[in-house]
Design a binder for these strands. Sequence first.
DNA 1: GCATGATCATGC
DNA 2: GCATGATCATGC
Length: 446
Amino acid sequence: MTSFNTIDKTDAGAITTFAKRLSDKTLRQICGNEIVNHGYSGKGNFGQILEKFYFEYAPNSEAEPDFKEAGLELKTSPLKIMLKTQAFHAKERLVLNIINYREIVHQGFNNSSFWKKNAHLLLVFYHPEKDKDIIDYLIKLVEDWRFSTSDLAIIQKDWELIKAKVVAGKAHELSEGDTFYLGACTKGGKGGNPRHQPNSKILAKQRAYSLKRGYVNHIVASIAGNETALYGKLIDDSSTVQDIATVVIRKFKQYYGKTTDEIIALLGISINKNSKSFHASLTKVILGIELNKEIAEFEKAEVTVKTVRLKKNNLPKEDISFPTFKYKEIIEESWDESRFKEILEHKFLFVFYQENAEKQLILKQVKFWNMPYSDIQEVKKLWIETAARIKNGRAADLPKKSEHSICHVRPHAQNAKDTYETPQGNHVVKKCFWLNSQYIRDAIYL
DNA sequence: GCATGATCATGC
DNA sequence: GCATGATCATGC
């Protein structure tokens, strides 16, 4: 193989071309058997082996990009194959450099450690398979990446929010749901590797900048050129306003106080009022997205839309459900790696309608929301209690609404015969966590 | 009127 | 066939 040492290190194009030789190959094929005794094991080491044996430099954690003369940062990330479409998707968020709490408060975006390191990425996507050695993973996609103008505007806004929280002495309250594309994800194993922060005595978990999985999906699809879904954009590079929340709220606001019938008439469209997807369709139409398309920004930011019907007293008619959990799986999870915590760390868009005297639905308010850190800590207690009861054979008796102010557990199944097996071997109706209607009213709507 | 249990509709 | 979002039914 041609050595990387023959490549012009100031030329990002030449480095990318050299990297592209990896496409559709494995590390063993490209580097030969010299890497069999690579000495690395376990997750996350694909990148280190690639750096050491292909690019021939020692893994480091410097503030400069990996190829600093070319301003290019090497990142490797795993893909998974979607069963239905056989298309490649991002398996995980893409973790970037550590957020230095002491430094960020003195930085602007353009001289931030995030931007210095990640303005230009060299991405290597590989396909990990169980039971295979890391060096036998197939490398599927290799490409350099720069953020589009409109994406960068959103990422900069995300960065400003992360900084503002650290400036306010709230680094310990950072959550991935705070932001749209650029997340602050935990990094550093169990215990969260607590760090000092500048404006508070409270220790904060170590966190890194990361691109959300939905955003990495967008990168993968755009590199592979095989978008399976159709996307409609709220914002493009020529938009005057480049902020997701501002654009969305502005579009909805002109219909506040109007009934769904009036909104439909004003929009001049016809959608089936009796369909259960009526509200989802109406949301898309208000946002100017065609019904057969997905909202590009929401997919990239992994925004979950929830439609809520309020009663006259502002209390939602229903609690909000989440996916069911399997009794035998939840007891094997820890809270920090739990599916439910991951769900709660997403950003939500709530669309509130309220019933009037004639039983018509009036659009009241839309709100982007993510669960505050302190509430997530409360839910953690409920989750632990739930797992403990299941372990103790009490799957039929899980925390009720009266036991917790934020969430409860309740059936969510086709019918009473639709069950999952418990650790004890009996079958109990499928259940899930629900967000209490009172909490939705008090913590989100009002 | 609400908590709790139960079930429906849709789309993949 | 099942996951998911949404909604209904009953009894206290």
